[in-house]
């Protein structure tokens, strides 16, 4: 039986892992390569590494980190932030990443999803999206609008419509990162996760809001997600990946 994946997310700024609430008040949490190795040894199923300042600083992604993470983990990992072309994708994949994650780039240029899928295969192209709840159901039938550039920009895109379009273009996986839940550690936004998971034929990853193992149970059971991203709850040391797995109930998990 296919197992539910637990995916630690490392937000990297100046070669350090940081964590903020809604992209604000970032605090230093440690060395990304050391943390990746620790989570791998503890049984995480995949990793994601975001170079969160690359876009803002208009520089390419820090390829050294990709190489260093690839040298210490023997599981798939995705890399995002600062990807602005097929060449950037190729550099990241050749450095040892399994997947590249695009978000704002795909909103301004959806064709990059199709081009990336054609060049490297759909399984390499992850669409990250940051939906925010909205009362305007006329304009946004799903009740969620896609934001861009670290939640700062409203795009006018309906979340479910955008997810379906991205999957049709060739995205192999979709990370649904709820703006409302991000950093709260109060649980995933199960409503938008489920709406997207039920609407697309590709795997969906719940993101934003993980604080307890029960939240991951719910992401699988009620959110219909195939995987979940965890960050603050493990970065602070309050939980470990193996501890989360031991506490989860009713969800198929990989045992190491």
């Amino acid at each position: 039986m296919l197992t539910f994946r637990i995916i630690p997310c490392l937000d990297v700024r100046n070669r350090r892992v940081t964590k903020g609430v809604k992209f604000q008040n970032n605090i230093d949490l440690g060395d990304p390569v050391e943390m990746a190795a620790r989570y791998y040894e503890d049984g995480c199923d995949e990793l994601v590494v975001y170079d969160i300042t690359a876009s803002a600083e208009r520089r390419p992604i820090d390829i050294g980190i990709v190489r260093d993470v690839a040298s210490v983990v023997r599981i798939p990992f995705a890399v995002g932030g600062g990807i602005s072309s097929l060449d950037d994708m190729r550099r990241v994949l050749l450095a040892g990443a399994e997947k590249v994650s695009v978000n704002s780039l795909a909103i301004s240029n959806p064709q990059v999803i199709a081009d990336g899928a054609k060049a490297f295969g759909s399984q390499c192209i992850v669409l990250g999206m940051d939906p925010v709840r909205t009362p305007d159901l006329e304009k946004f039938p799903s009740g969620y609008e896609i934001t861009a550039r670290g939640f700062r920009v409203r795009t006018g895109l309906d979340a479910v419509e955008w997810a379906k379009r991205a999957a049709d273009l060739g995205a192999g996986e979709i990370v649904v990162n709820s703006v409302d839940a991000d950093g709260t550690r109060a649980g995933f936004d199960l409503e938008i996760t489920r709406k997207i998971a039920d609407a697309v034929g590709v795997p969906v990853i719940a993101s934003g809001g993980a604080g307890k193992p029960e939240h991951l149970d719910a992401a699988w059971r009620d959110g219909h997600a195939d995987a979940a991203i965890v960050a603050g709850m493990i970065h602070t040391g309050e939980w470990t990946v193996s501890g989360i797995k031991a506490a989860m109930r009713g969800v198929p998990l990989r045992r190491t």
Binding site: M1, L2, T3, R5, S122, H224, A227, R254
Partner: peptide
């Protein structure tokens, strides 16, 4: 079934 996605992606026995 409801969780029948393609590709088959992830960890399996």
């Amino acid at each position: 079934g409801p969780r029948a996605k393609i590709p088959h992606m992830g960890w399996n026995q």
